[in-house]
Design a protein around this nucleic acid. Structure first.
Lengths: 139, 139
DNA sequence: GAATTATATTCGTCTTGACGAATATGTAAA
DNA sequence: TTTACATATTCGTCAAGACGAATATAATTC
């Protein structure tokens, strides 16, 4: 049988939001689908660390992953729990108010506009906006 | 110098919400001020466990305590962070939908109506409703 | 098919936090 | 002032999780 995605759990959801790195990742995703290498570049953190936090978010039912050749794209998905969905939305809005989070997004924009300056992103697929209805939990 | 209440921290806030016992405590408080012995009775848990979780919630800036003779009363306070305040509100509303949380509240009501049947609550001050403007963080 | 690239997982270590048991503190009552 | 009561804190243990380092996997390119 397949790995069996655990049913949505509110405590797990909160635990997932209780970490700075994961909040930064969520802030970067916003309504975009982003490839792992971008997270690594923008957060300036080791790749295994990024992957582990993304896995945690996926287990908590907050993000979903899509494979695209060598690359993996992550995006935020709307949790099945209605309150959690609202909370996630408010959290993202609140993060955007923080200076450090704005700086992260700023660096992301810069990386997208002038990818030539970021050698680790050569050939990497840039983030793409996702339509609000796209967020079903496909793993 | 005094113990120095740490400034409000969003990660800490989420970590505080990421525990079942603490969610039960918050659900019981709702808009009432409740004495520790009631938590112990309703959750049927060891008193030190209850006290530790209440301390955690207090450190996270989610509840405040008031001493009243031998008793300590706890109540929910509105976090200074606007998003956190909203999130807390939604979380409480969401908890009320859960059957187990309703059962907790049900037992609390029963204990208040017929305290004679709960020998651990003899002489304990019953929960009291708090006015919505009362929730400033007095420790 | 071997080398490369992108990402995931494992391992060892350390910190945080949850728990029960025991003990300390703070207040009131005797 | 002892005693009892309500609550808080400490201690030892254990599990979860965060991290860097190393390694494994999966897809692509040569």
């Amino acid at each position: 049988m397949p790995p069996k995605q655990a049913p949505f759990n509110l405590e797990r959801f909160f635990q997932a939001l209780g970490d700075h790195t994961r909040l930064r990742l969520l802030n970067l995703m916003g309504d975009q689908e982003i490839c792992v290498c971008y997270f690594v570049e923008i957060l300036d953190a080791p790749q295994p660390k990024i992957s582990r936090h993304l896995a945690y978010l996926r287990n908590a039912g907050i993000v979903a992953a899509r494979r695209d050749g060598k690359w993996m794209h992550y995006r935020i998905v709307t949790p099945p729990n209605e309150a959690a969905a609202q909370i996630l939305k408010q959290t993202l809005a609140s993060l955007q108010q923080e200076k450090a989070m704005q700086a992260d997004l700023c660096r992301l924009t810069k990386a997208c506009c002038t990818p030539a300056k970021f050698l680790s992103l050569q050939g990497a697929p840039p983030p793409t906006a996702i339509s609000p209805s796209h967020n079903s939990a496909s793993r």
